[in-house]
Amino acid sequence: MAVELGRYGVWHGPQHWGPELAAGLEQAGYGTLWLGASPEADLRDAEVLLASTKSVAVGTSIVNMWKTPAADVAASYHRLEDDYPGRFLLGVGIGHPERTGAYRSPYQTIVGYLDDLDDAKVPVDRRALAALGPKVLQLAATRTAGALPYLTTPEHTREARRTLGGGVLLAPEQKVVLETDPEIARSTGRDYLASYLQLSNYVSNLERLGFTGEDIADGGSDRLVDALVLHGTAVEIAAGLKAHLDAGADHVVIQQLGREGVDLLPGYEALATVLQ
């Protein structure tokens, strides 16, 4: 893999990112900053993260294939590679039928998009694919550097590694709440999970993992919320993150949840001290 990601990275949408948080996370020792929530084709938000830091990697998780023409994002990739060589990984994905009016065959759309990236000379080892089910995981293994599963568990990571085989990037995302009161932590988790549990791609994957309709209903059962949103002390959360590595992940993408406006950096710094 051409981009060195480190063991742990941090995921947020562009509304949470800024130069101060980016620089602080690099100083804390995180290997990659992940830009979520379907960034625009010009990748200017990714450029801000690269410009705010010295050597940390930056990745997209993910550029939405329906929203972003491959030729446009490829041109932005080449601009970033010219300006910040070796530091950017282009994560792409198909998105969700509930949020895309023109949704058609997902698999063929992914294949065609990757073909277009080939034509635009985006190297296979500098791109990764959002993948949950076996078919798309296999595609990630053969057409990209590897897979970026979102809203998963260590059990999914273990199955994904079996599907991908060795030598292929596996970088699952894991949500966390630094809160020792389980009821408060679960309330925070449920608030964030509510919209995701309405999306068929995620629901199907959770059902494959053994969760039931009762688990998924009404914001999620305690069992589901505890699996998708780790909570507790930094030491307890670190053990849950390490479970992904033990299950076969190369890199774990951490998303800390908290109240709007709360400074997230201290929590990430506390986690970093026990993860290193």
Rank of each mutant, 00 (worst) to 15 (best):
V3F: 01
L5V: 08
V10I: 15
P14L: 02
H16G: 15
E26H: 05
G29M: 13
G31S: 09
L33R: 11
L35T: 01
A41M: 01
D42T: 12
D45F: 03
A46R: 03
K54L: 03
S55V: 13
V56L: 11
T60G: 12
T60S: 14
T60V: 01
V63N: 09
A70N: 05
A75F: 10
A75P: 02
A75H: 12
Y77C: 06
R79A: 07
Y84N: 03
G95W: 11
G101A: 15
L114E: 02
D119I: 04
A131G: 10
V136Y: 05
L139F: 00
A141F: 15
Y150F: 14
T153W: 12
P154W: 05
V168M: 01
K175W: 06
V176H: 06
D181L: 04
P182K: 03
P182A: 13
A185G: 02
R186M: 14
S195K: 00
L197C: 05
L197E: 00
T212I: 01
G213Y: 09
I216Y: 11
A217G: 07
G220R: 09
D226Y: 02
L228H: 08
A234C: 10
K242A: 04
L245C: 10
D246H: 13
H251K: 02
V253Q: 11
V262Y: 10
E269L: 12
A270Y: 03
T273A: 12
L275S: 11
